[in-house]
Write a protein that binds this DNA or RNA. Structure first.
Lengths: 116, 116
DNA sequence: GTTTGACTTGGAGCGCACTCCAAGGGCGAA
DNA sequence: TTCGCCCTTGGAGTGCGCTCCAAGTCAAAC
């Protein structure tokens, strides 16, 4: 799969895919005869997971840490799990915060509706 | 109220408060005899509202737009309300997205738990 | 009276996450 | 064979939202 197709499928730009590879988030993407990147299905699955971490607010630095652990092998599974559990709590807290802010927003909008 | 007290109460830094004033987010904060900022209660209420907008992901540019409309007077209430309503939808969508990502994360964590 | 410390201003600097650029390579179509 | 296009790399640039700095002012403490 070309970089353009991979970009389209995971919702990132080709530039971002190259950037992710450069900083070690994606490891050893295959190349074809002309030296062009050739993405495999498992690259896409990993990218989908990365974009989930990213969209839930994990920093690139932490994602790199996770990717590094993953490359290090099965014995890092515990640490990876811990990272995900901690991140999960942050996401849950964020949802709670947003939910509260949403109702504050609703209250404000209601006030506007009653005034106008 | 000094800038330090105001900063503590709204959870921003004094630098950020000065920055917000510079870009027009906060208008005409009072000064005392020595030219130091002297925040009033209504400044704090406005700041609390601003931090809610900010923490729900509204851009500084949009917040400036809102602040500008507010300064322009009551005849802009409709437009302000529209801004808030649109923002509200974005926040709701964000919550939905995060909630989905959270369950994906839970799924992944569950897999780790079953493996280790 | 001098020191301390918080404040003022305009402007520069920073960290993050990309995003773009220049120079060059490879390949299919006309 | 030449054109057009997409790809490669390393490195530079960008936008956002602050954050820090230098130089100066002022008031209270010692």
């Amino acid at each position: 799969m070309t970089i353009q197709e991979a970009a389209r499928r995971c919702g990132l730009s080709a530039d971002t895919l190259r950037y992710y590879e450069r900083i070690g988030l994606i490891h050893a993407v295959g190349r074809n005869g002309s030296g062009h990147r050739d993405y495999a299905e498992h690259d896409l699955e990993w990218l989908d997971f990365l974009t989930k971490l990213r969209s839930t607010g994990m920093s690139i630095a932490d994602m790199c840490r996770y990717a590094e652990l993953r490359r290090a092998g099965a014995h890092t599974a515990g640490e990876r799990r811990l990272m995900l559990e901690r991140h999960r709590e942050k996401v849950a807290a964020r949802i709670a915060e947003l939910t509260q802010d949403l109702s504050a927003l609703d209250y404000k909008i209601k006030a506007y509706r009653e005034t106008t």
